[in-house]
């Protein structure tokens, strides 16, 4: 019984990071109708930029608490610099083309980004764990927990709720909902769909980069981080049902917990645990937990 809480905290913290990737992937899929393999790159680039900024903050002798701000800044920077540029140059070109073309183009982008990251940062791992150290630990019933893990969980729930609010309550959210429901009619009502595409894509990039930035404080960053993120993100998005925010949240929890349970009880199963879950879910519900074949909504 005493291991339930530690497993839960670890699993949920892991779920939080995967959720940031998966929810952006699912958002981009709903609005732009593309499966973006390059999404994983935004996660690892977010991690690199966060480590660089964080190390700079510490190196200059600024207050270590500023590293929280620098993580957020890193994600915003990656989103603003890469989001519109990538959407306008490469991704837009794939709209309405066969899925195979979209996946080839975005996979090519992913490979280019991987090599660019190796050119820029080499293959050695980087880390900057000041944010994690700052938050310290809590001890509950003799077990020590990282407060950072708990903060991740709270943040993921807040982001899910925030996205829901954004979609339901704001002008941007309503335009996005309309574009997802009926792209063509949306245009005839005066909605500039291209602008909605850029904004939604950039928001997706921001969420992925934020996930990477937050992850960099716990695990550091090294080549391969982006690939792991996109594969897990796809698995979670598929389990939840592509295009489903709450589905992505629940699926991230299932995958996160299955990973830590596997690590605890059967470490050799850990790498395949998410995919075993995905297989099982898709065999029973081919469109994911929350998805349906005809569904077009967020």
């Amino acid at each position: 019984m005493s291991i339930v809480l530690p497993l839960l905290v670890d699993g949920l913290a892991e779920a939080a990071l995967i959720f940031f990737v998966a929810v952006g992937l699912t958002l981009v899929f709903s609005v732009l109708r593309i499966l973006n393999v390059a999404h994983g790159s935004f996660y690892s680039i977010g991690a690199y930029v966060a480590v660089l900024l964080g190390t700079w903050v510490i190196g200059r002798g600024y207050a270590p608490a500023l590293t929280f701000l620098s993580m957020l800044l890193a994600a915003a920077l990656v989103a603003v610099v890469l989001g519109p540029a990538i959407e306008r140059s490469f991704v837009r070109w794939t709209y309405g083309r066969p899925e195979a073309v979209q996946i080839l183009v975005t996979f090519a982008l992913f490979l280019i980004f991987e090599d660019l990251q190796k050119l820029a940062f080499g293959v050695q791992p980087y880390s900057q764990d000041a944010p994690m150290q700052l938050l310290g630990v809590s001890s509950i019933a003799g077990v020590v927990y990282l407060n950072y893990s708990i903060a991740l969980i709270v943040l993921a729930v807040a982001v899910a709720a925030g996205l829901r609010l954004l979609l339901a309550r704001t002008r941007f959210g309503k335009l996005v909902t309309a574009v997802v429901a009926d792209r063509e009619v949306a245009q005839t009502l005066g909605i500039n769909t291209e602008r909605v595409f850029v904004s939604a894509f950039t928001l997706g990039v921001f969420l992925a980069a934020l996930g990477g930035a937050l992850a960099s404080a716990t695990s550091g960053v090294a080549p391969g981080l982006g690939a792991e993120a996109i594969v897990l993100g796809f698995a979670v998005a598929a389990i939840g049902g592509l295009g489903q925010i709450e589905g992505a949240l629940l699926a991230a929890v299932i995958v996160g917990i299955s990973r830590v349970v596997a690590i605890y009880f059967m470490p050799e199963l850990q790498p395949v645990a998410p995919y075993l879950v995905m297989l099982t879910v898709l065999l029973v519900r081919p469109f994911g937990l929350f998805g349906s074949p005809a569904m077009r909504r967020l």
Binding site: K174, T177, A178, A181, D182, E184, V185, Q187, T188, L189, G190, I191, N192, T193, E194, R297
Partner: peptide
């Protein structure tokens, strides 16, 4: 002009199959 700009000029369009936003 793209479709949304034509709408901004005051051209309204009702397609044959209604196509309302179901969740609104």
């Amino acid at each position: 002009m793209r479709a949304h700009a034509r709408a901004a000029l005051g051209i309204g369009y009702a397609p044959e199959d209604r196509r309302l936003i179901p969740e609104f």
